[in-house]
Design a binder for these strands. Structure first.
Length: 560
RNA sequence: AGGGGAGUCGCCAAGUGGUAAGGCAUCGGAUUUUGAUUCCGACAUUCGCAGGUUCGAUCCCUGCCUCCCCUGCCA
């Protein structure tokens, strides 16, 4: 990704392990990681952390990161998810090159290894029902009980397993279990199931198989077959590691590679939910418009919201990697997006809550052309013209009939600068019988035009944006806010009750005319408001639609 | 209760026997035609608690406390 902004790398425990391995020559200097999602849903912000970690490690150590789908559960997985996941990883800026893999590509090998485990007496076909197995698994206090089928001969097991594969049995009739230790304090070692019967169509292998391997058996072998060095996963797999190692130890003579599993703390973010189950619930309940709703913490949603890959990179660098459970506040992510967008986005003017401003001493047929820089930090991006006239749109909130303490914008008698134009002096306002603002009146000071000599001889504190009534355009603007109203949704009740009722406001705003022709996904800062993006799906030149990505910091409203 | 992990500033997070990096936030101040940005300054005598070892402990030892994960034929 960006190399110009390269910062010194901060140490973390995973890098330390890699450094030690490189120093000892454990992997011969090789670094191979992998990002292994199951294609049963869309990627979310938490996956971004894992993607930047894994692909970032490969980049920094001149290694490789494999893109691999953990597709061993045919009933939940679909090609649609594979496509969306690949697109999101690409969007974040990563390229897996030739290294695209599917666990399902290893089904033949996985099966052969299972037969070998059986032959070695390390796996057996269990014919207990799921309920019996559960009852015999034991508890934290009591060891499990051996299955009555645990001592079947290798020949018998092999015959049964082959018939399972051949489709002679119904779902659930038999399973293949690793023969480890029913008394282990680690439940994962109490003879874990490694194959189950599923007469289901797989999105890639179709109906070729009716038995499918389970995660614990598949993942470690996939890693080893690909010669992964550091297999990075989240903390909840920590007590699966003994099983990961058991399988690879037993298969060492056949595979000759034993990857190292390393666990880190997954991302916890406030004001949002990141569990697949809850995301599905939000979509199915219609609380959001779909998987790419800009409020949803999915990567497709982030993209539509206007979040940037670079912003996610800043974010993952900023939060670091460790094994401590932690909660990151949503404001950290938002600030990272601002940081990137401040540099990346050109400025434009938008009046979100328009009210008329009439310059009474400006001729009705008068005309002035004002120049506005496209980016204050990048003068090379040039300027654009905005037509100044007698009637303008300004923000309703930029006027106060009776100003609050510290308010330095428009109120009777006060002077402000119309940004990139003239200084004006407010003469009053028209209000209806309910006190609602209809129009603001002012006189302009002709010698104060921005960019002309002596323009700043008149000093003012306030500086507000405006748009001409004739020559600006009406557009739909979607003001997105946090999906949940509380930091920790569902703490002691249904999380759906914590949805922020104001997470989206759709308004009719006035925009600079040039904004109609911007390509979908073009990002801008609407001055004094925040960052906005032309909606990826709904924005058209004849019907502009902009989404608010994130607002600018506002220390006035915060303290006021 | 058994097993596996974690506890360093408001939020993250380095460090690990030699006297607490950094980032974010916050608070001052400067600049500013975005109440934005930028810039400058401040910000842990202290590393969950209590003992012990040591010339010296956040780091080693002992005990305790708190939090997270684990009984899918999910991943």
């Amino acid at each position: 990704m960006s190399d110009a902004t390269e910062k010194p790398v901060i140490a973390n425990f995973i890098r330390n392990i890699i450094d030690e391995d490189n120093a000892s020559g454990k992997w011969g200097g090789r670094v191979a990681t992998r990002f292994p999602p199951e294609p049963n849903g869309y990627l979310h912000y938490g996956h971004a952390k894992s993607i930047f970690l894994n692909f970032g490690l490969a980049r920094d150590y001149a290694g490789e990161c494999h893109m691999r789908f953990d597709d061993t559960n045919p009933e939940k997985e679909e090609q649609e998810y594979v496509d969306a996941i690949l697109e999101s990883v690409r969007w974040l800026g990563f390229d897996w090159g030739q290294h695209l893999y599917y666990a399902s590509d290893y089904f033949d090998q996985l099966y052969a290894f299972a037969e070998s485990l059986i032959e070695q007496g390390l796996a057996y076909v269990d014919s207990q029902s799921a309920e019996e197995m559960r009852a015999n698994r034991g508890t934290h206090l009591e060891p499990g009980r051996n299955s009555p089928w645990r001592e079947r001969t290798a020949a018998e097991n092999l015959d049964l397993f082959r018939r399972m594969k051949a489709g002679e049995f119904a779902d659930g009739e038999h399973v293949l279990r690793a023969k480890i230790d029913m008394a282990s304090p680690n439940f994962n070692l109490r003879d874990p199931v490694i194959y189950r019967i599923r007469h289901a169509e797989h999105h890639r292998t179709g109906n070729r198989w009716c038995i499918y391997p389970l995660y614990d058996y598949t993942h470690c072998i996939s890693d080893a077959l690909e010669h992964i060095t550091h297999s990075v996963c989240t903390l909840e797999f920590e007590d699966h590691r003994p099983l990961y190692d058991w399988v690879l130890d037993k298969l060492m003579p056949k595979i000759g590679w034993h990857s190292q599993q390393i666990e880190f703390a997954r991302l916890n973010l406030t004001y949002v939910v990141l569990s697949k189950r809850k995301l599905i619930q939000l979509v199915e309940a219609g609380a959001v418009d779909g998987w790419d709703d800009p409020r949803l913490p999915t990567l497709v949603g982030a993209r539509r919201r206007g979040f940037t890959p670079e912003g996610f990179r800043l974010f993952t660098d900023r939060i670091g990697v460790s094994k401590a459970d932690s909660w990151i506040d949503m404001s950290v992510l938002e600030e990272c997006m601002r940081e990137d967008l401040n540099l990346a986005a050109e400025r434009r003017i938008a009046v979100l809550d328009p009210v008329r401003l009439i310059i009474d001493n400006f001729p009705a047929d008068g005309q002035e052309t004002c120049l506005a820089p496209n980016h204050p930090l990048k003068p090379e991006l040039g300027k654009r013209e905005i037509a100044f006239g007698r009637e303008l749109w300004i923000e309703r909130e930029d006027y106060m009939e009776t100003p609050a303490k510290g308010f330095f914008r428009l109120y009777p008698g006060n002077r402000v600068r119309l940004r990139y134009a003239f200084v004006i002096e407010c003469t009053g306002a028209e209000l209806d019988s309910e006190g609602r603002l209809l129009a603001v009146h002012a006189n302009y000071l002709p010698d104060t035009k921005s960019g002309t000599p002596g323009s700043d001889s008149v000093k003012v504190k306030g500086n507000i944006h405006w748009l001409p009534v004739h020559g600006s355009l009406a557009a739909e603007v979607r003001l997105y806010d946090r999906l949940f109203a509380v930091a920790h949704p569902g703490t002691d009740h249904d999380f759906m009750l914590d949805i922020n009722p104001d997470s989206r406001r759709i308004i009719e705003a006035r925009l600079e005319s040039g904004l109609a022709d911007a390509a979908p996904e073009s990002r801008f800062q609407f001055e004094r408001h925040g960052y906005f993006v032309a909606d990826r799906r709904d924005h058209h030149p004849d019907r502009p639609v902009y989404n608010r990505t994130v607002g600018l910091k506002d220390t006035w409203q915060k303290s006021g």
